[in-house]
Design a binder for these strands. Sequence first.
DNA 1: AAACTTAGTGTATTTGTGACACATTTGCGC
DNA 2: GCGCAAATGTGTCACAAATACACTAAGTTT
Lengths: 236, 236
Amino acid sequence: MNQPQINPNVSVDCALFSFDGSELEVLLIERMAGETTLEDDLLALPGNLIYQNENLDQAANRVLFELTGLENIFLEQVYTFGDPARITKEKDQDWLKKIRVHPEARVITVAYTSLVKKSNLKVSPSSFARKALWVKVKEVPQLAFDHNEIFTKALDFLKQKIYLQPLGYELLPERFTLAQLQKLYEAILDDSFDKRNFRRKILRTSFIVPLDEKQQGVAHKPARLYRFDKSQFHQI
Amino acid sequence: MNQPQINPNVSVDCALFSFDGSELEVLLIERMAGETTLEDDLLALPGNLIYQNENLDQAANRVLFELTGLENIFLEQVYTFGDPARITKEKDQDWLKKIRVHPEARVITVAYTSLVKKSNLKVSPSSFARKALWVKVKEVPQLAFDHNEIFTKALDFLKQKIYLQPLGYELLPERFTLAQLQKLYEAILDDSFDKRNFRRKILRTSFIVPLDEKQQGVAHKPARLYRFDKSQFHQI
DNA sequence: AAACTTAGTGTATTTGTGACACATTTGCGC
DNA sequence: GCGCAAATGTGTCACAAATACACTAAGTTT
C-alpha cells in the first residue's frame, strides 16, 4: 500500500479534556521538529495535516490515535479556523520550516474535541509529539498558532453540550458517586451548585441509575454508587 | 493589483434564508459552466473556492457579495464538510471539469449561514451563477455536491440559534406586528404556538419594544407595531 | 465515646410553561 | 349606518421547574 498523500492546506486539531477529580484538564504536546524539539517552543494542541483520502472525522481520529493509541473515541467537530495569519508567529514559522514540505502553505484547521479518561490513555511519543501533558484549563499558557482560541472555543462547545447530553460518562469511572458527578459539572461549567438541587435535577433524568453499592474504606459515611445508562441518552 | 491566488482545496458555501411572510426560503443558484450552464444541472448553494490571502469569514462575505451585491451581512459559520466523496456525483464532476483548473482536487467546504431580507437583495448573475432563486425550504430538490446536507445542517443551526438570539430582525421589516414575528418563529422552528403564550414570552425579553403605531389600511382590527432593540441583544 | 467528615434528605417560594375563550377594532358590502 | 368578516388583544388556572435553605445519618479516627 502506498504512503497516503497529504493535503497541505487542511489540518485537524484536537482539544482533549480530562478530569482529575476536581479540575478539568486539557492535553497539550511538545511538538517535534524532526528528531528533536525547538528550544523554548510553545505547547500545542495535538493536530496534523489531513490525508487526501480520509474525511475530517477520520483524520481527527487518526491524529488522536497516532498520539495516544486511543481508538473509537467520540470526537466532535467544533469549528474551523482559517485566518491566513494564524501560522505567522515566529516560533510557529521556525517549526513549520523544520517539518513541512510547504512551510508557507496556507493551512486552515478543523477543530475537534472530546472527553477522555486519563487512566485509559497511554500517551506515546509520535512523529509529531515528543511528550504530551495534561494542563489544568485554568493554567493553560500561551500556545502555538491560534490554539488558545481553539481551546477556548472547544471549552465553550462543551459547556453548551453538557446541557443537552450527559457528557460525563466519558470522564468518570464506571461506578461513581453523585458528589463526583457534581464536581465534574462544576469543573466544566466553572460554577457551583446546591447539592440537593443538583441531585434532584440529575436524578430526574433517566441517564443515571443508582446501584446497590456503596463506597468502601472512606473515613466518613460511604456514598452510594451510580452508573450511566447510555441506552437512555436519546430520550431527552 | 494582482489577481488573488485561489486555494484549490478549500471553499465556502452559504445557506441564505429569507422569509416571505409565511414560509422560509433558501437561496439556490443555477451554476455556470463557463459561458453557459449544463443541461439538467443540479441547483446548488452559492459558494466558491477561497483566496489564499483572505480568512474564511471574508471569503464567505465575498462570495455572497459577488452573487448578491449584499455587504455587511452577518454570516455565521455552521460546520465544515470534508468527505472526499462529496464531489464525486457525475453531474458535479462534469461541472468541475468545465470550470476548475484542478477538477479532481480534494475540496473541503466551510458552510456559512445568514438571514436576509429578500427585498434588500438584487441577485446579479455572476461568474459562478447564472440565476439565483428562492426555494421554499420544504421544497428543496436534490442539490449539487453535499449541499442537501449543508442546507439541513444550516437550518438546524438556525433552530438552535433562534432560542439564544432574536434572529428575526434580519428577516422582518423595521416595524412589524407580533403576528408576523410569530409566523417567522413558526416557519423557522416548523411548529406552531399559542398566541397568548408566544406574546407573553417574547415580550418578557427586552429585545422587542412596542411602538405607538398601528397597522394602516387592513380590513380588520389593526395590529400594534413593534421594533427590535438591538442594544438589548446581549442582555439575555 | 467523642470528634470528625461527608452523605443524604424535604419544604416553601418563586418562576416559567401550556392550555384555553371571548370581546374589540377595523374595512367592506349592502 | 348596519351587519359581517377578519384578525387583534387579553387573563387565569394548573402544573412543572428552579431556587434557597439546615439538619440528621453513617462511617472512621483518636
